[in-house]
């Protein structure tokens, strides 16, 4: 009875959430530099223009280098932290974990300025892709921990003990039991870290320095030129499709991981 009202509201809410994403391909294929209704005609020229843009291709290359590195680094840190919190109990665990998870609530610009200050004024290092990787790893790690915690938590401790009891060493237990059971969580965590890094703007803007702009930094710079907007729409369409694909794969692995460990699905990411 009341469920109906809720359902209508929920669908309206989804329309609000998806409105920008749905508009994206509409204007990406619209044959006009002005982004407004009514539509003028169908074209694929904006997509074609993408491949001619050398600075765009360079930005994509940079972003891929950063995102791949971040996904590996953040997931490695996430594995350590998730294993530590789910398996061991020790004093100040909550405090240390609170610090590690802090970037979840800290505005990104604060992290950006703090790292910029530290890199340029204290360490005196020059800004490049590596500094961006360091910054992105910091903000992606809390997300990987959240995902990996769920994966490690559904792991019954007696599974390890059983393997150990049956003659395996600590290391081979990790390889034969723990790793296969959390592997889907690791894959899902890597994909999420990749997506976060690929999408992050403000830290990249502060830490990339000249000549190493990532994709979001490049996109932001293009917003100033109205004639470039349809090309950005085309690029956005590709990015959205890519993100949806990555997320679907991540979600598939996350669920499979929980099912594999015999656990119950309790919800999505975060």
């Amino acid at each position: 009875m009341k469920g109906r009202g809720f359902r209508i509201y929920a669908i309206a809410y989804l329309v609000f959430l998806y409105a920008p994403i749905v508009l994206l391909p509409i204007f990406a294929f619209n044959n006009s530099t002005i982004i407004s209704f009514p539509l003028v005609g169908f074209t694929t020229k904006w997509f074609a223009a993408l491949s001619d843009d050398t600075s765009l291709l360079l930005a994509v290359r940079h972003s891929l280098i950063v995102a791949v590195s971040v996904s590996i680094l953040a997931t490695t840190f996430g594995v350590f932290a998730a294993r530590a919190t789910t398996r061991y109990d020790f004093p100040a665990k909550g405090g240390i974990m609170g610090l590690i998870m802090l970037p979840l609530v800290l505005p990104d610009i604060i992290i950006a300025v703090a790292l910029l200050g530290a890199f340029t004024n204290i360490l005196g290092v020059s800004l490049n892709l590596f500094t961006v990787i360091l910054g992105h790893t910091l903000i992606a790690t809390p997300f990987t921990i959240a995902i990996l915690n769920a994966a490690f938590q559904s792991l019954d401790r007696s599974l390890e003990e059983a393997a150990y009891d049956l003659g395996e060493t600590k290391f081979s237990t990790f390889r034969l039991i723990i790793l296969p059971l959390v592997a889907p969580g690791i894959i899902s965590s890597m994909l999420i870290a990749f997506t976060i890094s690929l999408d992050e703007y403000i830290i990249a803007a502060f830490l990339s320095g000249a000549g190493s702009a990532t994709l979001p930094v490049y996109i932001f710079s293009q917003f100033r030129f109205p004639q470039r907007v349809p090309i950005i729409m085309a690029l956005g369409t590709i990015l959205v499709c890519l993100s949806v694909l990555l997320l679907t794969v991540a979600e598939y692995f996350r669920r499979r991981g929980i099912a594999k460990a015999g656990g119950k699905d309790t919800g999505g990411f975060l």
Partner: peptide
């Protein structure tokens, strides 16, 4: 050992 939760490797 036979564990209380049996600890059957689910994979």
């Amino acid at each position: 050992m036979v564990f209380q939760s049996y600890a059957i490797f689910p994979h």
